[in-house]
Nucleic acid binder design. Structure first.
Lengths: 195, 195
DNA sequence: TTTTAACTTGAACAGTCGCTCAAAATCAAA
DNA sequence: TTTGATTTTGAGCGACTGTTCAAGTTAAAA
């Protein structure tokens, strides 16, 4: 090795991820990114190949961060459902200010890329499928621990959770409805236990 | 009056609406629009003022169309809930091919405009609030007709409906899950009746 | 038939886009 | 200290962006 890379790849991806999450792919220019990560175009392009390449790595990193955030809530909660609930409450209620958007970046990606043949659309599908798999494992545990009945399968609970969660995040992505969030989350988990 | 406008404003807005709905605001160029509506830039700009102006009129027209589509299903159904169910089934299951996107254009707009001070973001909030009001009237009728219990208020039903509907449209905006749509819609309406 | 205001046209503007690449800077190994 | 592969720099490329406006077209009114 003759010369080391100066920047810290992880930090760059994380900063880019925040910007892409907030503004979306098309509304984020490469000059926005250059300023945010403090790199010149040549360095960015030698490290990530293209704007799409950097977005791709940003979206992958987003899902890794989200999963490890959930794992954190799970390990400081007695029950699987309690951990999931803490995560939902944190996303929908607590960090509305420090988070770039109330909407999941994966959902935003899936909504933005209309061309079903584009590689970024396919990536969003792939990451969403993997996240559903991750959730399914969690719901398998919840069923095994008798936190949920076994009338539904784990993947059915995972689907229900995603639909509720996405719906809630969309609805609370607006001003003036903050007080409704907690009751709606309570309702979501109450419904899930009675499915 | 010395000379009439050559194009039909309604048609132009409808075509532009489809394009904006499919690709989003930022990914749709004025040249895309020129080709789609078969107008030269000068005509578009004298009629709509700007790309934002045309988008604004397109989004308003979208909500008008959506409401009149719901009204259509309502008038060919015995019950209010039946009409709403037919609308949901039509959007989520039937016309996935002919519709530019499974996702509501209002939701897409709300997701795309990150700058909370932009006039298009505010427009999306305003139209969403009006649509919630429209739904609330429908649920008032459903309660009055004893299709739903009066344990919840009409606006609470309206909120529940929007969250479920948005969640479903997001989840079914992907290939391979078509068979799950009908059971999930059944579940949504079963849950609503037991709230 | 002429006039005239309204409408349409499309070349072109200034700015921004994603991206390239020759030159400068860097630093472990020799 | 010199070497030389690697990384960083930033001016700038060609394409595309939203938009303008002078010139051309249209058709009702005079």
């Amino acid at each position: 090795m003759v010369n080391k890379v100066k920047f810290e790849r992880e930090n760059v991806v994380r900063v880019a991820s925040q910007l892409f999450w907030e503004k979306g792919f098309h509304a984020t220019s490469t000059r926005d990114l250059q300023e945010a990560v403090n790199m010149r175009p040549g360095s960015i392009y030698s490290a990530f190949g293209s704007k799409e390449g950097l977005y791709s790595e940003s979206l992958k990193d987003y899902t890794v961060q989200m999963k490890s955030q959930i794992d954190g809530f799970l390990s400081s909660s007695d029950t699987t459902l309690g951990g999931l609930r803490a995560f939902v409450e944190n996303v929908v209620i607590k960090n509305k200010d420090c988070s770039p958007s109330a909407i999941c970046m994966l959902v935003k990606a899936n909504n933005e890329f209309a061309d079903k043949n584009s590689s970024l659309y396919e990536l969003s599908l792939d990451l969403a499928a993997k996240f559903e798999g991750y959730l399914t494992v969690l719901f398998e545990q919840a069923i095994a621990k008798n936190e949920l009945s076994d009338k539904l399968t784990a993947i059915e609970y995972a689907r229900f959770f995603q639909i509720q969660f996405t719906g809630l995040r969309g609805y609370f992505n607006r001003p003036g409805v903050e007080l409704l969030a907690q009751p709606m989350i309570n309702q979501m988990f109450a419904l899930m236990k009675n499915l």
